[in-house]
Nucleic acid binder design. Structure first.
Lengths: 350, 350
DNA sequence: CTGAAAGCGCTTACAG
DNA sequence: CTGAAAGCGCTTACAG
């Protein structure tokens, strides 16, 4: 049998139609209702005799019947496609594994339940509803949803369930988050114990609206002040190119906490470029602690948020929402600290 | 206005219906045909006066109309969703960036054209057609398609266009591939120039069916034989745990070529674990050369295949196929060698 | 210039 | 036990 697509290209527009329920009904001499019920179950009160049922199944197999999920989706208002919406998908192949871990977590929980996973990225903030509510998606996991007023209104009009991940989403929505405050505390404790006093917190300007970034920064400020230490924070670009100027200008913190592992990883690179010895000259801590932190030089000490588990949770919640349940917001996931080789006692007097 | 989903959960099943073309037609006092034509264009011969058109647009806006892409899809046999099928998606967050680079390449070419990208993974080889031809996908990019007889038959029945990536697919299908033979030659040249003679090629058993793996291995054997050198190849598991036994058993190659960057990266780790000094005691070369190779210790010398560009090409071809064009198979992408720090002259006499 | 109607491939009340 | 029919929300020949 010819590949139908090839057939089409070759025969110029004569597309061999797919075999449908109707074809089977005709071939088996029964109604489409019967075929639908036998082949796909469903909630109807149809009963079909064993003989006919067997015949239907046989014909379906012979004819190579493939149910049209789109038609079914239109009818029952369910497509079995869930989306994951990223604000910054383009960073996926730069090294840090936040996005990858998240995708993996979602994928391994929805795939066994026969859902397809769709990636949405760089969605127009003025047309979120359009992208989400056009019937193709059963639900969406929205990562790092910014508290953007343009977005907020639209979300309320959204026709599908949304689970926010690494962000609290809009009022009333379900979200999965980690305990940023706890994470920051752990990192500062660790550094202070090693003897650090002058600690700098670094943001990425590109991630300005990430809710986690905001939370971590404010947690840092609180934690430092509570300890009677100065709370310095800065915002640098992705490449951390300002690091060099910062050092030239006399910046002399003995430790840096990067809001993300990407950010911390870049600081490692820049610091080594200008000849600093790590961790002696500078201790660096990151956030996320994926496998990426095992590959940096030195290996990056990082606050761990269990991204995979969180993503699984988000996916499970989404599926329950889709099924019409009303799950509770899950507890905040605790963070822990993975001490690797990028932190040590400061060499210079602090 | 309430979130319709929340409304549903709250009101227990009373789902506020979305506004449809018909609603707009009624509100604007015209036919659905007119509305459809004004709002979505289309190829009909409908003409509508400017006044009515303006009214239609106004009503649509007022009613917050969102076109149902599913219904449209059913009608015009196009969903604007393309799939990427991976044989081993679970590895996405382990560090190596093949999958991530590929996804990024596809995403950045299909998204601007308003396609959604769906991830398919671990598809049942006995039911490929079902997963691909059920109407939800307009086409698919199939990565590392194995030459599996179970698969072959089914592909022919597949109703959507397929582009094979890093594999030649089935007879007649379009594929995007890199010049594995050239890559291997470059790597061997580089090593031989450094003074290596005893070179080992390493596979991963888990990737046994990957077409590239097979091609690279046979290229290695040919190239070594042509140079009058011994062509040793082995198959180890993902973690490269056999490396240690191999050394214990007296394995004394001075250089190793890993078929993938994952494989090579793991060898780096294992080698350093047992105290080898790299690259002096052992040179290692990988394949792919994504950003991952910048993060290993030492930084990994690797054969570069331009994954991002290849993915873009695959996506563009797929889109053309979907549009009914009959593009040619593109030329094989050349490989190059990125020399980093994991290769050097052998310390021991070769 | 415009509308009524058929139909994409399903599911499911409804009526025998 | 079984079938005829309506309808999901669109598009597009067809007929004015």
């Amino acid at each position: 049998m010819m590949n139908r697509f090839i057939a089409e290209s070759t025969r110029k527009g004569i597309w061999t139609m797919a075999v449908t329920l109707k074809d089977i009904a005709k071939a088996a001499g029964v109604s489409t209702s019967a075929v639908s019920h036998i082949l796909h179950g469903g909630n109807s009160n149809i009963r079909v005799g064993e003989v006919k049922a067997a015949e239907i199944r046989r014909v379906a197999k012979d004819l190579n019947y493939i149910p049209n999920a789109l038609a079914r989706g239109l009818r029952v208002n369910r497509t079995h496609i869930v989306g994951v919406l990223f604000e910054n998908f383009a960073g996926i192949d730069s090294g840090p594994l936040y996005i990858a871990s998240l995708l993996n977590g979602v994928a391994r929980t929805v795939m066994p339940r026969h859902y397809i996973l769709a990636i949405l990225s760089e969605v127009d903030h003025d047309d979120v509803v359009g992208s989400l509510s056009n019937g193709r998606l059963d639900g969406v996991i929205w990562c790092k949803m910014a508290r953007d007023s343009r977005v907020a209104d639209q979300i309320r009009n959204c026709q599908i369930p949304i689970v926010a991940m690494n962000g609290r989403g809009e009022t009333g929505s379900i979200f999965v988050a980690c305990d940023n405050r706890m994470g920051i505390e752990l990192a500062i404790d660790h550094l202070v114990e090693l003897g650090h006093q002058r600690i700098l917190f670094v943001n990425e300007v590109e991630e300005d609206t990430a809710p986690d970034r905001i939370e971590r920064r404010s947690a840092f400020i609180d934690a430092m002040e509570r300890r009677g230490l100065q709370s310095d924070t800065v915002s640098w670009d992705w490449a951390m190119s300002s690091f060099v100027e910062y050092r030239k200008a006399g910046g002399n913190h003995t430790a840096i906490i990067g809001w993300s592992e990407r950010c911390a990883g870049q600081i490692l690179v820049r610091a080594r470029e200008i000849g600093l010895e790590l961790p002696g000259d500078l201790s660096v801590v990151g956030f996320d602690s994926t496998n990426y932190c095992e590959t940096t030089t030195p290996r990056l000490t990082a606050i761990r948020q269990p991204i995979g588990e969180m993503a699984e949770m988000a996916a499970r919640l989404l599926l329950r929402l889709i099924d019409g349940e009303q799950p509770e917001c899950p507890p905040i996931f605790p963070c822990s600290l993975d001490v690797r080789r990028s932190t040590a006692a400061p060499r210079q007097k602090s």
